[in-house]
Design a binder for these strands. Structure first.
Length: 351
DNA sequence: CGCCTTTGACCTGCGC
DNA sequence: GCGCAGGTCAAAGGCG
């Protein structure tokens, strides 16, 4: 589909609001927004974007590879990456990514004029969820084991990372290999939700993909868990990921044991910057470092969310004493994180 | 033949 | 307890 929906700020807000309901908000303590246009019909867009971002990364001096440092900063005032979101339930510490987007070359069709809001074309809305994150003991279960695990899931759910993407393609290529293991009709939505699992043995990462009932051109993808293996295990069909300059860069600037993390490419691309859906600045996460328009990660050791393999941990210089907070650790500064954790702990104590 | 998708059945949690 | 909805399993079939 070549047509992009022009979204006003107001529209964005609505979208975000819907997101909360769409994404089982009870399990999404950290929804933040992000919006990206993949209307190019190119299933490889992520990878393309990744390549495009290469220079961005290359210019990053941070040795911990993918971090927010790589984030481009649009020239407008909405430079908060995370802001508070009205939460449906106190249980979660939801945060909204509200960094504005910039015009995207891949979303040409988005009639950049519509992007009258300049930076609003090609938006992506992401929702971040982080909970306890008992990542590792996933999978490998007999049925009884699975059931037992499910019981625990309620209390210690996998870290989740969700986002909205404008695309015709449901299963966006993020570099990992996924096996579809289920599909379900979603209530109040004409579009089914698909369930995928990472095909790598012992990697229990899952992702759910569904289309927004409000805007069919929007694909909502929710990742759950962290990859326990380097990325990508097996390039699928295209682009030799392991030899990509990006990875080379990551490996050389960080450490030889490092590898690049895929998904966040959405977030990293200068063409798909997060859109500031809320102007609530109470939880600003990323500060503009200077007029050069780059973000500075408040926590330099942070790596990109989610996608398993925490680069900072992989680094020999990283203290092993740092508590692993999963995705949360990757995204939130320690301050906010501790707040969140306290909140979670309190919640748990109540139970 | 291996990998993947499809799809109906089953399980579980939750609200009433 | 019942019904609903979400999530998962696993057999069957397709495809390269």
């Amino acid at each position: 589909m070549a047509n992009l929906v022009t979204s006003s700020d107001h529209h964005q807000l609505e979208l975000a609001g819907n997101l909360s309901s769409i994404f089982d908000t009870s399990s999404l303590p950290f929804p933040y927004s992000y919006f990206e246009d993949h209307s190019s019909n190119n299933p490889n867009s992520f990878l393309d974007l990744l390549r495009q971002d290469h220079h961005q990364f290359a210019s990053s001096s941070n040795s911990s590879s993918f971090s927010f440092d790589a984030f481009p900063l649009p020239n407008n005032n909405n430079n908060n990456f995370f802001t508070d979101l009205p939460l449906p339930q106190a249980e979660s510490s939801e945060v909204v990514n509200t960094t504005p987007t910039s015009p995207n070359s891949t979303s040409v069709s988005s009639s950049s004029n519509e992007a009258a809001n300049d930076n609003n074309s090609g938006k992506e809305v992401t929702v971040k969820d982080q909970e306890e994150g008992d990542q590792q003991q996933e999978q490998k279960g007999t049925k009884p084991q699975l059931k037992a695990k499910k019981k625990n899931q309620k209390k210690a759910r996998e870290a989740r990372f969700a986002f909205l993407t404008k695309s015709d393609i449901d299963n966006l290529d993020d570099g990992y290999r996924w096996r579809k293991y289920g599909q379900k009709a979603v209530k109040n939505s004409p579009y089914p939700r698909s369930y995928y699992r990472c095909t790598t043995v012992a990697c229990g990462v899952k992702k759910r993909v569904e289309r927004s009932s409000d805007d069919p051109s929007i694909v909502m993808t929710t990742y759950e868990g962290q990859h326990t293996h380097p990325f990508p295990m097996t390039p699928r069909g295209h682009i030799g990921m392991l030899t990509s300059p990006i990875l080379d860069h990551g490996a050389t600037t960080a450490s030889s044991s490092s590898f690049s993390i895929p998904q966040p490419r959405y977030l990293l691309t200068q063409h798909h910057q997060p859109y500031n859906m809320y102007n609530n600045n109470s939880l600003s996460m990323i500060n503009r470092s200077s007029s050069d328009g780059t973000f500075v990660n408040p926590e330099p050791s942070s790596s990109f969310p989610g996608f398993g393999y925490d680069m900072s941990q992989a680094s020999a210089s990283t203290s092993s004493s740092i508590r692993d907070h999963g995705l949360l650790q990757d995204i939130l500064p320690s301050q906010i994180r501790s707040d969140t954790i306290n909140t979670q702990t309190n919640e748990e104590n109540k139970k």
